[in-house]
Amino acid sequence: METTRQIRMAAAWPWISTAARLGLAAVWLVAGSLKIGDLAASARAVHAYQLMSYDTAKIAGAVQPFLEIALGLLLLIGLATRFTAAISAALITIFIAGIVWAWAQGLRIDCGCFSTGGDLAAGESTGYGVDILRDLAFLALSGILVWRPRTRFSLDGVFMGER
């Protein structure tokens, strides 16, 4: 019976990975498109972490939403899935580190994950714990894809000659 289960799992993995791939693509597309309309606010969100000078934060804040959307599109079409998932994981790890830093420093900021972020208005709570948990969930999605990058409906599959 063990072998039947293994065969079933082997058949299921590409579908699990496909769901992870599309989910992660959606995460990036949403995160990027929320920021792309106001690059000045995106720059302030980065600057609010007080990790870099404003001039550097301006560049990071402008480049970031475009990178996020590009990653989202690449995952959507499934090109070099393992590689894009690894880059996603690296980026998400940086974001988590940023939130932990802000938390440790006692900064009162909006993480800017799904917003243009920046300093919080009075009365708004920081919710760093929730932000980190959410990012860990995204990290898990990337992890699945790095581990099992074979997915359905992907350009990788087409190029590899899979059916």
């Binding site: 402008a62 480049v63 970031q64 939403p65 590009a70 690449l74 894009t84």
Partner: peptide, 18 residues
């Protein structure tokens, strides 16, 4: 080659932002 393509795409995206 797909990895190379990904690097190029991300580089171009970053460049557009800049």
């Amino acid at each position: 080659w797909t990895s190379v393509a990904v690097v190029v795409v991300l580089f171009v995206a970053g460049l557009i932002g800049y």
